[in-house]
């Protein structure tokens, strides 16, 4: 195999500020796999909150910043399906009237991958050699599963974690009710939805829920905490990471 490409870490803003351990897990994982990484430190936010709220001008400004920051990247990998959806599908839309920027957006979109997608589809890795003691279920985040079509990759990775008993929950592809600013603007509706999700998780018999988007997991974790449920909520990177896998108790 030729020299692996250097991965530019695209650390979702929520991971950066609230869940740095997810980014660290990714670093450890790539380290174990002997994949060179780099981290463009001027990255901030991909612009998704502005885009989803309708502020496309501001989203385009954030997108232009992102394109500059990652201009030299060989390949970009992000631990979030919705951020990759933003870059892959919405960046080209934001620059449809600007051919030069459109070309840059398309080039960047073509080399931006979600973590589980990159491992399975690009690197051909389905077993990261990690271990975890527990029963885990998987939440399909909406943009990841419906817009990027990534459903099987994370499951393959999870099934190969030694010691992890994988179970499916009912309606795993049903929205958790986060929806970005939706969760703040319509908290009661959002809470009813996350309650449905939490009930499905608990009914599966799992002690751990995982997924590829920290925003959904933050919503699930926040509601589980308020309800006093005993549930581990971990990003898939944390389960795949060889060093800390299984030691989250």
């Amino acid at each position: 195999m030729s020299q692996p490409k250097t991965v530019s870490l695209f650390i979702q803003c929520l991971v950066d500020s609230m869940f740095p351990e997810v980014g660290e897990a990714m670093v450890n994982l790539f380290d174990r796999l002997c994949i060179p990484i780099t981290y463009p430190a001027d990255q901030t936010c991909c612009g998704q909150p502005a885009f989803n709220s309708g502020y496309r001008k501001q989203a385009a400004e954030a997108a232009a910043h992102f394109l500059n920051v990652f201009a030299d990247a060989e390949v970009i990998v992000c631990p979030s399906g919705s951020c990759v959806h933003m870059v892959r599908h919405h960046y080209p839309l934001l620059f449809e009237d600007d051919p030069a920027m459109l070309q840059r957006a398309q080039q960047t979109a073509a080399k931006t991958f979600e973590l589980s997608e990159y491992l399975v589809d690009i690197l051909g890795i389905t077993d990261t050699g990690s271990t975890y003691a527990g029963t885990a279920t998987y939440h399909d985040s909406c943009h990841l599963s419906r817009e990027l079509g990534i459903k099987e990759q994370p499951r393959q990775l999870l099934r190969n974690i030694s010691g992890l008993h994988f179970v499916e929950m009912n309606d795993s592809e049903k929205c958790c009710g986060f929806g970005g600013t939706f969760s703040v603007h319509y908290p009661e509706i959002s809470t009813a939805m996350v309650d449905d999700k939490l009930d499905a998780i608990l009914a599966s018999g799992a002690d751990t829920v995982t997924g590829c988007d920290i925003s959904c997991l933050m919503n699930i974790k926040g509601r589980a905490s308020r309800r006093g449920e005993k549930l581990q909520v971990l990003h898939i990177a944390q389960l795949l990471e060889p060093v800390h896998g299984g030691s989250h108790e």
């Binding site: 650390i11 991971v15 950066d16 500020s17 609230m18 869940f19 740095p20 351990e21 980014g23 660290e24 670093v27 450890n28 790539f30 380290d31 002997c34 994949i35 060179p36 990484i37 780099t38 981290y39 430190a41 969760s183 703040v184 603007h185 319509y186 908290p187 009661e188 809470t191 996350v194 933050m218 919503n219 974790k221 926040g222 509601r223 905490s225 308020r226």
Partner: peptide, 30 residues
């Protein structure tokens, strides 16, 4: 609206970026 029915995980003491810039993230292949 968020905290009426949910808790929110806190902002971390050190962000990923801070840790990276302070070389606190160990990696052989950086």
């Amino acid at each position: 609206g968020w905290t009426t029915t949910r808790d929110l995980p806190p902002i971390a003491e050190s962000s990923f970026r801070q840790k990276w810039l302070q070389n606190k993230i160990a990696s052989k292949n950086v």
